[in-house]
Computed example of a mutant assay.
Amino acid sequence: MIRRALAAAFLLASLTLAPARAETLPPVTFSVMTYNVEGLPWPVRTGRGKALKAIGRELAAMRAAGRQPDVVLIQEGFRSEIWDLIDESGYDYVARGPNKGQRDPNMLKGQKTDFRRVKYRRKGEGLGKWGSSGLWVLSDHPINWVKSHAYHYCAGLDCLANKGAMLVSLEVAGLPTPVEIADTHLNSKGASGVPRRRATQAHRLQADELKRFMQEDRTPGAPLIVGGDFNVMHSPERFNHVMADYPFEVVSRWCHHRPGACDTQISYDGDAPWLDTQDLIGFLDGEQVTVTPVAVEATFDGASEPVLSDHDGYKVTFKLAPKG
C-alpha cells in the first residue's frame, strides 16, 4: 500500500512538473498592395497633386469598409502632396526610401560592369538627382527599423530620380517573428529615353544591386515579402534576370501554376501573367513562419476604386502561418 501510494504521488508530481506543450499559433491574414501612384512633378505631369489626395481618400474609404491593405508599397511618390495621401489614408506607421541626397557605395564593386555611367546627358544622365526614390511604405503594423539603398547605376531620364530599394521590419501581432517587406522601382524601358540596350543593361545592374542589398541587409530566416514596380512587362529577359539566383517566388506565377490555390480577382492574358504588368509581389517563407498567397486582386482599376494613376494597384492577401 505504501509503495503504491508513493508511486501514485511520484506520478502526480511528474505530471504536474512536466512542461506544458506549446500551442501552435493560428495563421494570420496579411495583405500587401503595391501601387505606382504617378506622383510626378509639373511640368512632367499635371493634376497629380489632386490625384494623390484622392488616392488617400480612397484608401480611407477602403479602411472604413474593412478592406484596406495591411501594407501599401508606393512608387513615384515624388511630390509634396504624398503627405496628403498619407494623412488621408489613416496609416499609423510610415517609412520612406532613399531621399534625393542619399548616396550609397557601389554594391557591385569589383564586378566588371562595362557600363559608362554618363553617356546621354540630353536624356538626364549626369545632371544630378532632381527627385527622391519616390518609395514609401505605409503600414498598420509597427515598424521596427528601416534600411535603404540608392542604386549606383541608372539610364536616361530615370537618372533624375534617386531610384533604389528599401526594407522594413514589421511587428505583426500573432507571429513569433517580425515580417520583412521590401519596396523597389527599377529602371524603365522606353520611358527612359535611351536605346533599349542601355536601359536593359541599367535594369540588370539595378536588379543585381537589389539582390546584393537583400542578401546583406535582410535578417536571415525572416519571412519576406517583396513588391514594387519592376518594369518587366512583356520582357522575359528582364524578368528572368530579376529572378535568377534569388529565392523568392512571384505571386502571379505561383498562383498560375496552382489552379484554384488563389482567389484571383484579376484578368490575365496568355500563359505568363507575370509579364502582363510592371508591378510584382514576391514572397519567401521564414524559418518560423510560412508565407502563402491566398487572394489576388486589382485595385484603383475603375471597379471598386477610380483610376487615379497610369498603374492599377495590385493587392495580394497572404496567410502567414507560424510553424508548429
Rank of each mutant, 00 (worst) to 15 (best):
Phe10Lys: 04
Tyr91Glu: 02
Thr299Trp: 00
Leu40Cys: 04
Gln265Thr: 06
Gln68Tyr: 02
Gly260Cys: 11
Asp208Pro: 00
Thr184Gln: 06
Ala321Lys: 15
Val28Pro: 00
Ala22Pro: 06
Val137Ile: 15
Met243Lys: 13
Gly313Ile: 01
Asp70Tyr: 01
Pro26Thr: 05
Asp217Cys: 06
Thr184Asn: 04
Gly270Arg: 12
Phe230Lys: 02
Phe10Arg: 10
Thr34Pro: 09
Ala321Val: 11
Leu127Arg: 15
Gly131Asp: 12
Thr113Gly: 00
Asp84Glu: 13
Ala303Lys: 12
Glu297His: 01
Gly128Ile: 03
Phe78Ile: 11
Met233Val: 04
Leu59Trp: 04
Trp136Asn: 09
Arg45Ser: 13
Asp217Ala: 13
Arg67Glu: 15
Pro293Asn: 13
Tyr153Ala: 04
Glu125Trp: 08
Ile281Val: 15
Val226His: 03
Lys147His: 13
Asp140Lys: 14
Ala173Asp: 14
Gln102Pro: 03
Asp245Glu: 14
Phe300Asn: 08
Pro236Ser: 10
Ala303Pro: 01
Phe300Trp: 04
Gly49Thr: 12
Ala22Asn: 02
Trp83Asn: 11
Leu85Arg: 07
Leu127Phe: 01
Ser139Arg: 12
Glu88Pro: 04
Lys50Cys: 03
Phe318Glu: 11
Arg121Tyr: 10
Ser89Lys: 05
Leu275Gly: 11
Trp274Asp: 15
His149Pro: 02
Pro43Asn: 06
Pro26Arg: 03
Pro247Leu: 08
Leu170Gly: 01
